[in-house]
Amino acid sequence: MTPRRTLADREDVLGGAMLAPALAYVTLLVGVPFVFAIVLSFSDATAGSLHFGWAGLRNYAAILGDPIFLRALRNSAVVTVGSQVLVVILATAAAQVFRATFRGKRFARFVILLPWAVPVSLAAIAWTWIFDSTFSVINWTLKAAGLLHGWLYWLGDPALALFAIIIVQAWRIFPFATVIVLAGLASIPQEIVEAAIVDGAGFWRRLLVVELPLLMPVVAVAVLFGVVYTATDLGVVYILTGGGPANTTHVLPTLAFQRGILGADLGQGAAIAVFLLPFLIVVAVAMLRLARRAEVGGGGSAR
């Protein structure tokens, strides 16, 4: 044993040293681009030129007067909210199923987690086939079942296309949410569930009055992640509809990409992307508040 103080004893130095890589990573790869994007949004920079001129609020004025942008903003909100509502319903239902014991549970759990593991672009390509105007699996299935008489142009009709995007986003996020909700369910003390059973509560009352309120903080976390993933996602919309038909299904990331990169107007693209920021901050703060206010389980036991 060394009688002297070694580096391993010096928590102040060691702490800093161990934090440094993570800090550098966040600063260089998240912080710098973030600040750069905000700066760009006030400039008239274009791709292919090194010219950098101050544009003031011109970019913002331009996009706020642009119906395509307003539509994209609305679409972002609709897709995010819509997909998360679906996710919460699906994940809660799936978690209830996985709480039961049945044969093949492990396999089923593996299958249900797949959408999360599949690269977004590959999955989106598979979905374009499911929504194809001629070969749509959904349409042919509905037709065979006698439920569909006309024909649904999933990606050709603005409303249907938006719905299709919501479905794919929900499909992509819900496995992750299921895992989180399952963990939340496991954290509800068994005795509380049994007390509800003895107190005469049926399945729905137990779910809606006891379990869901206790799950709220956990569901909030799942939704928070879902919102961030969905609101910032570019791949699904880009591959599925490319913003079409006629620029009706753009969301903020695809429009930013189209204007900023494809259209070479870096300033305007950045301005569009920056619009995501207040949106996400509000959501994050609200969700974290909610998570802190509600207390999960445990309150019944002596502590």
Binding site: I192, R205, G298, G300
Partner: peptide, 25 residues
């Protein structure tokens, strides 16, 4: 009616709401 070792009170409900639960059910 059963009383559990941990009492199994519903942590998100007030005392009133806890006691009222079986009656609501």
């Amino acid at each position: 009616a059963m009383v559990f070792q941990s009492y199994a009170l519903y942590p998100h409900r007030t005392v009133f709401q806890n006691i009222a639960f079986p009656l609501e059910a």
